[in-house]
Design a protein around this nucleic acid. Structure first.
Lengths: 119, 119
DNA sequence: TTCATATATGAATTACAATTCATATAAACA
DNA sequence: TGTTTATATGAATTGTAATTCATATATGAA
């Protein structure tokens, strides 16, 4: 396994839309699986699969409390990297952003439903 | 196209081993296609495909000189992000790096052949 | 102990990306 | 003009990752 393969694996692990959504929620604090599934309006099994991928890369860690399992980002510098890459991407108009309607997002927005009943 | 989809596209564009190798070479300065292919010991068409992907994301730009086409990274902050993510990954032991033999790389190393005859 | 809730997981499917191969284009040069 | 060199590109193949579905496991509660 070369250094580039490792780094690529890491970047691809972060570079998936659903995982990015999860990570952005986790930057605000820990969340349990069901909560993530509801907020993002995705199947629970899908969220679990993605969390497993993130955990295997040591990007998140988990903590069990009764039946629920809470996940959080392992390190604040990781959260910062995610934010930094977003800022950079927007400022430099990377990735065909020209062709996309930034600014007037029609509220298909991030697809989040903002429920926070689990706690 | 949501913000996360865009950001994911950008991160995945960077997060491919061959493209990372290309980008790391380009952090040292511009290079033409054939040079990249020889140094990385990969097919020219493969390098062209990857450069096209990077260009479509505005990560690199090109400049033609006679027959040759030289590529470089569009912005230094991008180069910095690539380096930062590598450092972070190594320091936090992300992505199963535990299981990998860091430190004694057996010189399969980066697979680079260090030829620089094109110029 | 039976039931409900929360999460994880393996298999199957589907979607997408990397690679190769053949070939097209275009510039430089004999 | 014909040839060589440099690059790009489309189609086909292969490999890999995302998603769904069914189900297993485990905790807590009735």
């Amino acid at each position: 396994m070369t250094a580039e393969e490792n780094q690529a694996r890491f970047l691809r692990c972060i570079g998936e839309p659903t995982r990015l959504q999860i990570l952005k929620l986790l930057t605000k604090g820990e969340r349990c699986v069901g909560e993530l599934a509801r907020v993002l309006n995705k199947e629970q099994s899908l969220i679990s699969h993605h969390l497993k991928a993130l955990k295997e890369c040591n990007i998140v860690k988990d903590r069990q409390e009764t039946q629920k399992v809470y996940y959080e980002i392992t390190n604040d510098r990781l959260a910062k990297l995610i934010i930094d890459s977003e800022v950079l991407m927007k400022e430099l108009s990377l990735c065909k952003c020209q062709e996309m309607n930034y600014g007037r997002e029609e509220n298909q927005g991030s697809g989040e439903e903002e429920i926070r009943s689990d706690s």
